[in-house]
């Protein structure tokens, strides 16, 4: 609950921060007036509604989604370092983006505006698809799942490299921007779409919470309690990958949120997935929003938020990893 309050407060602050300075109270005032009196087309209002609101909301949604994805991956794969990004989704998305930017190939015939997004989406599903296909032929363990994801990641980045070699400098710059992850270009429609997907997927994952708890105790225990670990794993993987793919294709690669948020929550409230999933979502949302605000404060040009999450997230993550797992094998 505390986290929820904090998230809302930060959202309000984030409305005020930015190139065009608005006071906190002024921003809140504008939003309140919009709800009570209807729109009045002033410049300030435009800024708030076309820039700040979608961006702030997107940060919340994506941060929450990434954190949930990370929490679920970590529970089901028994590894505090598992995260959809470290296991392949980001590399698939990058390759998709590179295909579009460099070669102009759209995998789905949807037209130019959504070409990059749809490409990134389709390609980012492939690592998970490979893992799932593989697990049809033999029952893969948690370890194999992670490693195959990483292997696919290496293959994909080899192809992305090849494409980048033939890219022009402008194309390279575009790709690099995309890879860093940024929330600048999202519209209200984007936010709605992503929110719908994240909400549904999170609800589905939350409904699997007891199975996930059993899995994190151990595969044998899960079998004894009547849960098939393999089925749960594949199901979770599919949902998580889908959700992450949607997010990554809109915002680019924003790393470390899925690693840091669940870890932080585990430290405070333990690993019970019934609480872990919602709390991680809240914390992830808060974390990304704070990073996004910081990125606007730090530089007026707008430092890509992916850089900040990496720069802030990785030391925290490392510290917690060492602190938490003193007694465990990871």
């Amino acid at each position: 609950m505390l986290l929820l309050v904090a998230a809302i407060a930060t959202l309000a602050v984030s409305m005020g921060v930015g190139q065009y300075h608005l006071g906190l109270s002024e921003a809140v005032d504008i939003i309140v007036r919009w709800f009570t009196d209807g729109p009045d087309d002033s410049l300030k209002e435009k800024i708030v509604f076309t820039q700040r609101v979608p961006r702030g909301l997107m940060a919340l949604v994506v941060g929450g989604g990434l954190a949930v994805a990370g929490a679920v991956m970590q529970s089901m794969l028994h590894n505090p370092l598992a995260d959809p990004y470290t296991t392949g989704v980001s590399s698939g998305a990058s390759l998709g983006a590179a295909l579009y930017v460099v070669l102009g190939i759209g995998i789905l015939p949807l037209g130019d505006t959504v070409g990059l997004v749809s490409n990134a989406f389709v390609m980012s599903l492939i690592p998970a698809a490979i893992v799932v296909l593989l697990s049809v032929y033999r029952r893969v363990t948690a370890t194999t799942m992670i490693l195959v994801g990483i292997g696919v990641m290496y293959v994909f980045s080899a192809f992305t490299q090849t494409l980048k070699v033939i890219a022009t400098p402008q194309q390279m710059e575009m790709l690099y921007m995309w890879q860093l992850g940024s929330l600048t270009q999202c519209t209200v429609q984007d936010v709605c779409a992503v929110f719908a997907v994240v909400a549904v997927c999170t609800a589905l994952l939350y409904s699997l919470r007891t199975d996930l708890n059993l899995l994190s105790v151990g595969d044998k225990a899960a079998v004894t309690m009547g849960t098939d670990p393999w089925k749960v794993r594949v199901l979770c993987l599919v949902i998580v990958s889908f959700m992450t793919s949607v997010m990554v294709s809109f915002t680019g690669v924003i790393g470390f949120v899925g690693l840091v948020a669940p870890q932080m929550i585990r430290l405070v409230m333990g690993s019970d997935n019934r609480f872990l999933i919602p709390a991680s979502a809240m914390f992830g949302a808060l974390f990304l929003l704070v990073c996004d605000c910081l990125s606007r404060v730090v530089s007026s040009v707008g430092l890509p938020v992916g850089i900040l999450t990496a720069a802030i997230g990785s030391p925290i993550f490392l510290y917690m990893l060492v602190k938490r797992s003193r007694r465990h094998t990871i």
């Binding site: 590894n79 370092l81 598992a82 990004y85 470290t86 980001s90 370890t143 992670i146 490693l147 990483i150 990641m153 390279m172 710059e173 690099y176 921007m177 890879q179 860093l180 690669v253 790393g255 470390f256 690693l259 430092l303 890509p304 992916g306 850089i307 990496a310 720069a311 990785s314 993550f317 060492v322 797992s325 003193r326 465990h328 094998t329 990871i330």
Partner: peptide, 30 residues
């Protein structure tokens, strides 16, 4: 030093580190 690390964890740490430095490097390129 503090944990017994499995090979998988080692590789995941490597991936995370590469991601971290990779994003910093991209920033410089931009």
């Amino acid at each position: 030093r503090v944990v017994r690390m499995t090979p998988v964890t080692l590789i995941l740490i490597g991936v995370a580190i590469s991601q971290f430095f990779g994003s910093l490097t991209s920033l410089i390129y931009i």
